[in-house]
């Protein structure tokens, strides 16, 4: 098990290097001359050359990349252009809020997705299964910004029961209850698409497992259908974990729209605000932190997968 985890950790290293290269490229594809734009159109060629060498931009690209990674490893993700503070602090504060929203949405998405998928699989051929399939397919197609706005219009302002934005009330806010009231609508909005995807994948998995020979063998050994179902669900967990890994990544990305619509103070909102101000270091930092989180999540998922499925430990 430990050697399995070490191998997985090792395998994550090239991925992380790749991630850093991709992000570095997004910095380099920014059109225009960064030095010229920093110094303004009236600057002299000498001043530009001086700044260029101070920023290391006269170095060949691989050297620039290594310098950039070196800073990255020290936690230096650059300075926010609009806020003039270290990006790392900004992003980490926001990331915590994003994690709360993502975790809540993930729980909702899995609860809804598993329920829908199980119904669609176990009541195959019945009307309720067709309904479940239809709900899953539609929810996959829903744009989060549309859904979020409609929820604000009809649920939040329509009933007045739930807040329209933010994480806590500005006056007299705070505490778990307040957080819960605020997280419901963005959580539901963020959960819909993953719930649909989970439902569809889970349906396929349950059908696959239920048609495996050992299920039939359990029946032949005299087990009740309920008990057989338990064994079947146990056998869907490896696939569920794989789905979880993918969907958590989707949730981390999708929160940009949700956080923007609901003004949830997470990475997504930070990224959105930075777009208008062309504050690229913040956007890049947001992407790096999310990708890092995604890689860590997948490591955890792999480890869980290996504890559940003995074949995983043997393979790879």
């Amino acid at each position: 098990m430990i050697s399995f985890l070490l191998r997985r950790l090792l395998a994550a290293v090239p991925i992380l290097i790749g991630v850093s290269i991709v992000v570095f490229i997004t910095i380099k594809i920014i059109p225009g001359d960064p030095v010229a734009s920093l110094l303004g159109p009236t600057s002299t060629p000498e001043a530009r050359a001086a700044l260029e060498s101070r920023l290391g931009l006269d170095q060949p690209l691989p050297v620039q990349y290594l310098q950039w990674v070196w800073h990255l490893l020290q936690g230096d993700l650059g300075t926010s252009i609009s806020k003039q503070t270290q990006v790392l602090g900004l992003v980490l504060d926001a990331f915590w809020n994003t994690l709360i929203l993502t975790a809540f949405a993930a729980i909702l998405a899995f609860a809804m997705g598993i329920a829908l998928g199980a119904v669609a699989a176990l009541r195959r051929g019945k009307a309720v299964a067709a309904l479940g399939n239809a709900i899953a397919l539609i929810s996959i197609s829903l744009p989060q910004y549309s859904v979020g706005l409609l929820l604000i219009i009809y649920i939040a302002t329509g009933t007045g029961l739930l807040p329209t934005a933010g994480m806590y009330d500005a006056i007299g806010g705070g505490g778990w209850g307040d957080l819960f009231r605020h997280i419901i609508l963005p959580g539901v909005t963020a959960a819909l698409v993953p719930a649909g995807i989970i439902a569809r994948m889970f349906r396929t998995t349950v059908i696959d497992v239920m048609s495996m020979d050992f299920i039939d063998a359990l029946r032949a050994r005299g087990m009740s259908e309920r008990r057989i179902l338990l064994h079947a669900f146990h056998n869907t967990t490896p696939t569920l974990l794989t789905i979880a890994g993918l969907q958590l990544g989707y949730l981390l990305g999708g929160v940009v729209f949700v956080e923007t619509v609901f003004s949830w103070p997470g990475i997504g909102l930070l990224v959105f605000q930075s777009i208008a101000q062309r504050d690229l270091p913040v956007i890049q930092a947001g992407v790096i932190v999310s990708a890092l989180a995604f890689v860590v999540i997948n490591l955890v998922v792999d480890a869980l997968h290996a504890t559940i499925d003995p074949r995983m430990r043997a393979h790879s």
């Binding site: 991925i15 990544g249 989707y250 981390l252 999310s290």
Partner: peptide, 15 residues
């Protein structure tokens, strides 16, 4: 390894 939407935003924002 990237959340897809975020990567698209980063690329589009850079360009």
């Amino acid at each position: 390894a990237f959340p897809a939407v975020l990567l698209a935003i980063a690329i589009a924002a850079a360009l």
